[in-house]
């Protein structure tokens, strides 16, 4: 079947998936192939070991309509190396990302202003040159967006970022399969 991507934009939603996997070779490729094979872009990705060295967690952000996301989650659950998939969106969770950004800091005014912003955003200045400051900012996506927005006016020279990683605040109950939805899903699917 076809997963059409031309859904009305208002239905698209960002989902943060926490995927517990066996720490075995190829498992990341299986997860990403499954998603890219359906024509979806992964917005952000991070992988790391958990407390149990045999188990890794993949935190993955993907945008799509609820039906497609639910299908992707089920397909992910079907992978032999996938232990658990949790859609954190809609649950209570914390997310963090680390970003490094080099901004122009030539005048005294700019330097003072950037230092003040660092205070507000609890960012760190991790490298200094005659013409620039390099900052390290951690936080959720919104905070990072806000900080970057303000820093833009100084002139951003370079910027790198880790993937977003996320954690539920308490153990969320797995969402029930097939929560009530409209009856017929996609009449467009029946073409030849």
């Amino acid at each position: 079947m076809e997963f059409s991507t031309d859904q009305p934009p208002e239905k698209l939603k960002r989902h943060t998936l926490a995927i517990l996997v066996d720490n075995s070779p190829g498992v990341l490729a299986r997860v990403t192939t499954l998603i890219s094979g359906r024509g979806f872009n992964i917005d952000s990705l991070s992988v790391a070991e958990t407390m149990d060295p045999e188990v890794s967690v993949i935190t993955l952000i993907i945008t799509g309509n609820p039906r497609i996301i639910s299908q992707i989650i089920k397909q992910l659950r079907k992978l032999i190396n996938v232990i658990r998939v949790t859609d954190l969106s809609g649950t209570d969770y914390v997310e963090r990302q680390l970003i490094m950004v080099r901004v122009k800091a030539e005048s005294d005014g700019a330097r003072a202003e950037i230092t003040r912003l660092c205070d507000i955003f609890r960012a760190k200045i991790i490298d200094v040159s005659l013409k620039s400051y390099t900052l390290e900012i951690t936080g959720g996506m919104d905070k990072i967006k806000a900080a970057l927005n303000l820093l833009k006016s100084f002139g951003v020279e370079e910027q790198v970022s880790t993937g977003l990683t996320a954690m539920a605040r308490s153990h969320p109950a797995a969402p029930p399969d097939g929560a009530a939805r409209g009856r017929r899903l996609d009449p467009k699917n029946a073409d030849g």
Binding site: Q75, R183, D186
Partner: peptide, 16 residues
């Protein structure tokens, strides 16, 4: 196969 259920259309009674 859980992925088959509710994939194409929503059903009233799913039996995995």
């Amino acid at each position: 196969d859980t992925t088959s259920i509710h994939k194409i259309l929503d059903v009233d009674v799913p039996l995995v």
